Simulated assay, not measured.
Amino acid sequence: MNYRKSWSEHLFDTSNITFLVLLSLITLYPFVYVLFASLSDPVAFVQHRGLFMWPKGFTLESYRLVFENPNIIMGYGNTLFYVVVGTLLSLLMTSLGAYGLSRKNVLWKNTIMFMIVLTMFFEGGLIPKYILMLNLGLVDSRWALIIPSAILTWNLIIMRTAFQGIPVTLEESARIDGANDLTILFRVIIPLSLPVMAVMVLFYGVWHWNKWFDALIYLRSRDLFPLQLILREILIQNSTDNMTTSVGGGDKMPIGETIKYATIMVATLPILFLYPFLQKYFVKGVMIGAIKE
């Protein structure tokens, strides 16, 4: 049976597609602007006014100066450490917490869950948190960026709900075969929850990659600074002088501007490349964690 759309349905489809295309272009333009600015000739870029639809000239000089900056390389190494170690620890701790809170007949399970959810709305504040970190000896330590955020409440709720959706008969069968809780978690629950685990990798990975405020508060040694804190210094404090010393000529302001955009691209592209590999799990994993049949 062939279904013929009415003129109102065609009008709605056309309007909807047009709106979504315009919305996509508006969303994409800031990224394209930064990309083209980083590839442009510095003098031509500074003199340009209006929309930026293509690079003004073409040069990779800004990227060369960025990668020659030892602070950028150091920040990359630190950020990779925080992302890899932090994400693995967060996955482990969140899985353990979600498993315990998703099992039936767990003593005070609802009370514990209420106290966990309460932390989404109320917290002690920055000063008490800093005093706690100081007393624990975590100030000016790599672990100051990893341990306090090992479990994020929202991610715990998503994973707990996903674990609750797994049939309890699978757990009972594993116990009959002599499996303990750790065996059930790592050999039954987690293999059946790969979509939500992939989403957790994305959530925690982006969280650790973009983290800069905790580093600003707790870190004193520059050799521990993550990439985002180095990026903040370049963009906000305009600290590009050490990157333009090898540039000839008098006015170094134009190359300093394109260096800022090149640094943004260098700090953004790696995490963007992670999305295509996890995209097929993203919607499914979030829906598993958000809807319980």
Results as ranks from 00 to 15, higher is better:
8 S>V: 10
77 G>S: 12
164 Q>H: 06
124 G>T: 06
110 N>R: 14
269 L>P: 15
223 D>E: 10
212 W>P: 03
216 L>N: 11
271 I>Q: 14
9 E>D: 09
118 L>W: 15
40 S>R: 01
260 K>V: 02
292 K>H: 02
144 A>E: 03
47 Q>A: 14
13 D>C: 05
62 S>G: 15
89 L>Y: 00
32 V>Q: 11
195 P>D: 11
188 V>Q: 14
49 R>D: 09
290 A>P: 06
171 E>C: 13
56 K>F: 05
173 S>H: 03
214 D>I: 00
165 G>R: 10
21 V>R: 08
212 W>G: 02
126 L>N: 08
209 W>F: 01
240 T>D: 01
11 L>I: 11
185 L>A: 15
66 V>T: 03
7 W>F: 01
69 N>I: 09
53 M>R: 12
12 F>T: 04
77 G>F: 11
94 T>S: 08
257 E>I: 00
41 D>T: 11
190 I>K: 15
209 W>M: 00
165 G>L: 07
208 H>I: 00
135 N>I: 05
215 A>E: 02
31 F>V: 09
129 K>A: 11
87 T>L: 07
1 M>T: 13
46 V>G: 09
101 L>H: 07
33 Y>N: 08
162 A>L: 10
35 L>Y: 05
273 F>T: 13
183 T>L: 09
245 T>M: 09
219 L>P: 09
38 S>A: 10
260 K>W: 02
232 R>E: 00
262 A>F: 06
8 S>T: 07
225 F>E: 00
54 W>P: 11
7 W>S: 02
45 F>I: 15
60 L>P: 15
229 L>A: 13
240 T>A: 04
123 E>N: 13
29 Y>C: 09
254 P>W: 01
